[in-house]
């Protein structure tokens, strides 16, 4: 087939760019999920600390 090198190049570039973009979205999603997990952990820890401080204070009050 004449010019099939150009055809191959065009389709290779299309799929490389599409997969590159999909990978970029996947990588971003993983990063955001990790950040969300860290935030949830730190909020959970803070709530636990506040809860235990509140219960200590109420015990002292009694």
């Amino acid at each position: 087939m004449e010019n099939s090198g150009y055809l191959f190049a065009a389709y290779t570039i299309i799929w490389a760019v599409v997969f590159g973009y999909v990978f970029f979205l996947y990588y971003k999603q993983r990063k955001l999920r990790r950040q969300m997990g860290l935030l949830e952990d730190s909020i959970g820890k803070r709530q636990n600390r506040n809860g235990s401080e509140a219960s200590t204070e109420s015990n002292h009050g009694e």
Binding site: M1, E2, N3, Y6, L7, A10, Y11, I14
Partner: peptide, 16 residues
């Protein structure tokens, strides 16, 4: 089918 005038490279058109 392959285009008679431009040959295989015309297939780029279907995604372009």
């Amino acid at each position: 089918p392959t285009d008679k005038n431009t040959g295989a490279v015309q297939r780029i058109f279907y995604f372009h």
